[in-house]
């Protein structure tokens, strides 16, 4: 394990043309990271990554398992804070504000940068309560009617309202996997975040449910900035405008999705998208 790591870091120097350290600049950056490093104890999971995520775009992070793409995603709303041994360095900004600043309230940050997880994780409460929870704790509503409205529009946007409107008081855990994941998306958008982070949101779903979620992501792009981590290159190609390719904690390449998939600069990227390794 240790040895492997050493040989990999040697490899890193062998590819000076990787974008490591160099920012992939974007004009309308919503989120930007400069020189980001993430460590789990002794192990470095993200090595000096710099990138921008454009507003109202879908940005896909791809790469083989363990390349650090989920870790990087979780660094964007400080979910890594919940892991004791995890340490983050570098500069992360949301609309130009440093999100790791001591003054930043992590709770408010997470209200602005929502998250959808790999496995659908509805609360073991009713569908209504699942969606209403966020607006309640953030004090977004003063009246029950406002809350009703938020819950309905969120479910509507998540494309779930039609299927569940007659049973809002049934447990969210009783829905099918795809529905649960859309419920989680509705829950995330109910607090009107600016950015939604999705960590392999379809990996636990069947193809039909996956198609629905992908459709939904495309619609949500209008109002939100979306970052999606995915294992499936087809999915990245289908839903994203820009794609970043990670390998062993390095950002190898980032660019327009089309370019990445048709004409990658780097041979590692090419190797990955053509399925030679992964």
């Amino acid at each position: 394990m240790k040895d492997e790591q050493h040989s990999e870091s040697a490899q890193e120097h062998a590819y000076p043309e990787t974008t490591a350290g160099k920012p992939t600049v974007e004009d309308n950056a919503k989120v930007s990271a400069r020189g980001a490093n993430v460590y789990y104890g002794e192990k470095q999971a993200i090595k000096n990554v710099s990138l921008d995520v454009g507003a109202h775009e879908v940005t896909a992070f791809i790469g083989p398992s363990g390349c650090g793409k989920s870790t990087f995603l979780r660094a964007l709303n400080r979910m890594n804070d919940t892991i004791d041994i995890c340490r983050v360095t570098g500069d992360f900004r949301l609309d130009g504000e440093d999100i790791y600043d001591r003054k930043v309230d992590v709770v408010q940050l997470r209200a602005r940068v929502g998250m959808v997880f790999q496995k659908p994780n509805p609360f073991p409460k009713s569908i209504f309560e699942n969606v209403a929870y966020g607006p309640r704790i953030h004090g977004l509503v003063a009246h029950k009617s406002e809350l009703d409205e938020i819950v309905h529009t969120s479910l509507e946007r998540a494309g779930l309202l039609g299927e569940v409107k007659d049973r809002l008081d049934t447990p969210g855990t009783g829905l099918s996997g795809g529905q649960q994941q859309r419920l989680c998306i509705a829950r995330a958008i109910a607090v009107s975040p600016e950015v939604i982070l999705m960590d392999e949101p379809c990996s636990a779903l069947d193809p039909i449910a996956t198609a629905k979620i992908e459709e939904l992501i495309d619609e949500l792009r209008e109002n939100y900035t979306i970052v999606i981590v995915t294992h499936s290159m087809q999915q990245a190609a289908r839903v994203s405008q820009r794609t970043a390719f990670f390998h062993l904690g390095n950002l190898v390449e980032m660019g327009d999705t089309e370019t990445i998939f048709t004409n990658p600069e780097h041979k590692l990227t090419q190797g990955y998208i053509t399925g030679r390794f992964g």
């Binding site: 309230d105 408010q108 704790i137 953030h138 004090g139 509503v141 003063a142």
Partner: peptide, 9 residues
């Protein structure tokens, strides 16, 4: 403006 409050009342 309830959103102006940092914390719930």
């Amino acid at each position: 403006q309830p959103r102006a409050l940092h914390s719930l009342p």
